Amino acid sequence: MASTDIDDVVGYWDRDARRDGDRVSHEAFGWTQYDGRGPGAEPLGGPRSALELGSGRGDAVAALAAQGVDATGVDLSGEHHRLALRTWGGLPGAHVVHGQGRAVVHRPPPPAAAGARPRGARRAFSHAPAVPGSHGVQGMCGDGFTGRQVWIHRWAHEPGTWADLLTEHGFTDVRVWVEPAPEPDHVGTLIGTARRG
């Protein structure tokens, strides 16, 4: 059986967009995989503008724009870009771009990618927590445990390691935590915020 590797990351996210269909919302901003769980836009610190890398169908961009933030989302998936344009293309303050944020989102860890950000800019990110005791690049089954073999690599660290990496790379006001899932034995969401010193 042939497998698909990270080289097909665009195809993976295009398939993800087709699975989501027209499920969209700009009523709330979310960091976790659970609707209505976790913080809203507070970790961003009330920006006038925001850039989201890997913006998917644009829901977070729309939620920020609805709050008066000039928000731009960049996504490498043409399917996600088309869905975002169709859904949010007329919303004032919401901009979606089809671009190669892949080098930033999928390859190096966020501290290395953020060096070009302006001083004082706040960086915020979320992802599934690292497997306990593991850090760095980790593999996962991109389509779950059924269907085609699709291997996706992601960067993941435990909260203390993220905090150390961000501090070492010149960030200040660092906060990294795991937002718990609604059920105690379910997967939470790691959320990190920091300011470029």
Rank of each mutant, 00 (worst) to 15 (best):
V178L: 06
P109N: 07
A103Y: 10
A181T: 07
H98V: 05
H95Q: 05
G78T: 08
R117D: 14
H80C: 07
G58C: 02
H106Y: 11
V69C: 01
L51W: 01
L83H: 03
G133P: 05
P132Y: 14
A163I: 03
Q138T: 08
R148A: 14
L53D: 00
S134K: 14
G73V: 00
A66K: 01
S49L: 09
V97R: 02
H98G: 05
H186R: 15
L53A: 05
A121H: 10
M140Q: 12
G147M: 10
E179Y: 09
A128I: 11
L165W: 01
I152A: 09
T167M: 04
P180D: 11
A130L: 06
G73N: 01
A113I: 06
Q67A: 09
P132G: 13
D164F: 03
G160W: 10
H98E: 10
E183D: 14
T146S: 15
T167D: 06
P180R: 10
L83I: 06
P109G: 05
T172V: 13
V105C: 04
T167W: 03
P118F: 11
G136R: 06
V61A: 00
A116V: 13
T189Y: 05
P184Q: 11
P118V: 15
R119I: 13
D185F: 13
W162M: 03
H80P: 04
Q149P: 13
R82N: 03
D185N: 15
E168D: 11
Q100F: 14
S49H: 10
D75Y: 01
E179I: 07
A116Y: 12
R123V: 12
A66F: 01
A71E: 01
A60Q: 02
H127W: 08
G170Y: 00
G99E: 07
V174N: 03
E79C: 07
V97Q: 04
D143Y: 12
F145N: 14
P111T: 04
H186N: 14
D164V: 06
V178C: 07
R86K: 10
V174E: 02
A114C: 14
S77Y: 01
A71N: 02
P110R: 03
F171M: 06
V174Y: 00
A130N: 02
V137Q: 12
D70N: 07
R154P: 02
R117W: 15
P118R: 14
V105M: 06
P132W: 14
Q138D: 09
P92G: 12
G68I: 03
G139F: 10
R117M: 15
G142R: 05
V187S: 15
S126I: 04
V187L: 13
A71V: 02
C141M: 15
L190C: 04
A116Q: 13
R175V: 10
Q138S: 10
I152C: 12
R122L: 04
W88I: 01
A65F: 00
W88Q: 01
G90I: 04
H127G: 07
Q149N: 15
D173N: 10
S49G: 11
E158Q: 13
V137E: 14
D164G: 09
H106F: 10
H127D: 09
H153Y: 12
A156I: 03
A65L: 02
R123G: 11
A121F: 09
G115F: 11
Q67N: 08
E179M: 10
H80E: 08
G139H: 12
H127F: 09
R102E: 11
P109A: 08
Q100T: 12
H81G: 05
G54A: 09
G89C: 07
E179H: 13
G54Y: 01
H153N: 12
A63M: 01
A163P: 03
H186E: 15
D143E: 15
